[in-house]
Amino acid sequence: MNLSSKLHKAIFATGALVFSGVLAATPASAASPTAAKAAIVPATPAPAGAPALGLFSISASGQSVNEWTGNQNWTQIGGASAGIAVGPTGVVSIAPGSNNVYLNNGSGWTQIGGAAKQVVQDSSGNIFSISASGQSVNEWTGNQNWTQIGGASAGIAVGPTGVVSIAPGSNNVYLNNGTGWTQIGGAAKQVVQDSSGNIFSISASGQSVNEWTGNQSWTQIGGPSESLTAGGPGLISIAPSSLNVFAYTGSGWTQIGGAAKEVAQDSSGDIFSISASGQSVNEWTGGQSWTQIGGPAEHLAAY
């Protein structure tokens, strides 16, 4: 399927979030997990070479944005990029140098904003950014218009439960569910949200993976982690030192791969990685088996 047809599907993978901010406004009611969330389900591998719902990469040189079209075939859809976010609205890219924000909705690239440090996109296609100065979180409202929704931030991610943030300095975790910001946790190194709205974090020390259970309560579900990825139902962790890839089954962890630099997951649970060397893009096909689907890459984004 080409980019244009993919963009008609209202599907996406949520992005990892590390959020900062002098974030005010506590909602009237205490934060709680999304009602009747789907259970965490282990990822099911896709047949090798089957195109993802949408898998994109930034080349190892950073000079091109590419779309996977199946097997080991990739099509260049854009030039140099410092970061991409994908979802129903299209592919969003930050241009190196200027850091201006561009959108490709299937018919070419259009500038939609000024300098940004990070961009993310939710399941409805809403686009959010952190300003280049890191001092504000903003929501795109069309054309080149943005509305500020939060203060300073070191990173953001979005999902059905809302926008989550790690505040600079304290590293405390905050959630904006549409009614303002409220603290939902203490210091964290990274936070992610899956497509069902479940929120997970790596502790500030990096020694535990935790799941949010409401208000400011968290339950430890894993040990040390280098990074987390959440897309479709499921949670993926890269272990420190070894960089081996593990999947959370809902009751424990299973190793599904060797050393990886980065892992991406689409909304169907298909899993992709960049090898630790950065020399190949690979698709998980079950067990600890992976099939190479591309060459060197710097970054992956899937929805």
Rank of each mutant, 00 (worst) to 15 (best):
N66H: 08
P47N: 12
T75C: 00
I156V: 06
S195H: 09
E262V: 04
G250N: 09
A46I: 01
A259K: 04
Q193R: 00
K189A: 14
K37D: 03
S123W: 03
Q292V: 08
G97W: 01
S273A: 13
N66D: 14
G83F: 04
K117P: 07
S93M: 04
G155H: 02
G294T: 09
N2I: 00
N282Y: 03
S153H: 05
A13T: 12
P240L: 01
I40Q: 09
N126K: 03
W253D: 11
K261N: 09
T141Y: 00
P45R: 01
A48R: 02
A36S: 15
T26L: 06
G97F: 03
G83H: 04
I11L: 11
G108E: 04
F200A: 07
L55F: 06
G234E: 05
Q292H: 08
G180S: 12
T110K: 14
G134E: 05
T34E: 04
S124V: 02
W212N: 11
T219C: 14
P233D: 02
W74Q: 02
S289N: 13
A85S: 15
N244D: 15
N71T: 14
T75S: 11
A297K: 02
V173S: 05
S57W: 00
K117R: 14
A50G: 03
G108D: 10
P224D: 15
T179Q: 15
N176E: 10
L17G: 15
A247N: 06
Q292P: 13
Q72W: 00
F19Q: 13
S107F: 12
A259T: 03
A82H: 08
W109I: 07
I58Q: 05
I256W: 06
Q72G: 00
A302R: 03
S32N: 07
T254R: 14
L17M: 10
N100H: 13
T69C: 06
G258K: 02
S133I: 01
P42C: 07
A13E: 05
N145T: 14
L17R: 11
A239K: 15
Q144P: 00
T147S: 13
S225L: 08
G231M: 05
G231E: 05
P168Y: 01
S251K: 13
G278M: 09
A48Y: 05
Q292F: 11
I271K: 08
G252F: 09
A264I: 08
G185N: 03
H299E: 11
A301G: 10
G232Y: 10
I84Y: 05
S289G: 00
I271P: 10
S273T: 11
A50Q: 14
N215R: 11
A46F: 09
N99T: 12
T219Y: 12
I271L: 14
A48H: 07
T254W: 12
Q76L: 05
N104A: 00
L3W: 00
S133W: 01
K117F: 11
G252W: 13
F272I: 00
V86N: 07
I84T: 10
N100C: 01
W218R: 04
N215W: 03
F246I: 00
A259S: 14
T285V: 15
G83P: 02
P88R: 03
G79D: 06
A43Q: 10
A297F: 09
N215L: 04
